[in-house]
Computed example of a mutant assay.
Amino acid sequence: MDNQRSACIAIVGRPNVGKSTLLNKLIGEKIAIVSKKPQTTRTRIMGVLTEGEDQLVFLDTPGLLKPRNPLGDYMVRSITAALEEVDACLLVTEAGAPVSKADQELVQRFRRGRLPALLAINKIDLLADKSPLMEQIAAYSRLYDFRAVVPVSARDGSGMDALSDELKALTQPGGWLFDEDTLTDQPERVLAAEFVREKVLRLLDQEIPHGVAAVTEIMRERGELLELHVTLYCEKANHKGILIGKGGAMLKQIGSAARADLERFFGCKVNLQLWVKVKEDWRQRPETLQGLGFSQRDFQL
């Protein structure tokens, strides 16, 4: 206990810069779903990394955006709540991208809270010419006094060891916040539903995936088999038909892809059953959001 050190760190940034991929890489386990679509992360996700005497508690947040509905309001409130709880922040941006309005707003919040912050410039593997990085680093350094600026690739692991070292430098004495074997605060039922929603995001295009929520209705063990019943909620009847597909083909494809991830994560065979139901305009209705698991309790560490 005397030598144990910890830090609680919010991972923030505009949508689709790779925050969840970065968290998964840091933790060494997939606990946050990822896709190329913005707004993949809807809730605050906690991940814990314990190595030696250091424990890093990460709060992965939705990308900062202008809310257009109660779900968007919920996502922005989750960012605000995270910044009020943490010891430091990790701002994630994309290699070669200019300073965004979202970045500027987040930095203003750092300044108001007098929060130590690190900058991770992600996706450097996609930048063939690395020379713009120096200009980008200079632009962000003028914006805020970051403790460190680390170019990384969450996809191939470049720079991740250096980032981890800089994050550990933020830890303070006083013991750990969680047991050594803690990985996340996400219930297994929530993780299972999110793995299914990830496949919807990856397999379908345009607006339909953003109007889909996934809820695990049944989760039970049957010997060495894990039985999961997950319901996909969409906003319109025609979206239900698209999710199911001709002869159930799309729903089968979603289920097959999700089952592979679920079996890797849980380490056993999974019997996954999927259903699709319509809840009209669920993103616009606060009471429906509560019923689908978007609770104010999510803002508490």
Rank of each mutant, 00 (worst) to 15 (best):
S164Y: 11
M46G: 06
L183M: 10
D181G: 09
L23C: 09
D54A: 10
P67N: 09
T216G: 02
I124C: 07
E280L: 00
D73S: 09
C234F: 05
W275A: 14
V270E: 03
D179G: 13
L127A: 05
N122V: 03
A260D: 07
Q108E: 15
A7Q: 04
V200W: 06
W275E: 13
K236W: 02
D2A: 13
L292T: 12
V152K: 01
L126N: 05
W282Q: 01
D205E: 10
A82Q: 11
A260G: 02
L59C: 07
L127C: 04
E235N: 07
V12M: 06
A260I: 14
T231A: 04
V270Y: 02
F195E: 00
L203A: 08
P98V: 07
I242M: 05
I31D: 01
L64A: 03
G241Y: 07
L226Q: 03
R112K: 14
S35E: 03
A7I: 09
K36I: 00
E85M: 12
T182G: 03
D2W: 11
L163S: 01
S35Y: 07
M160C: 11
V92P: 01
G248E: 10
D103R: 07
M1G: 12
V270T: 02
P38V: 15
A97S: 15
R112I: 08
V57D: 00
L23N: 05
A97Y: 04
L90A: 11
A192D: 02
R155C: 00
F299A: 12
I244D: 04
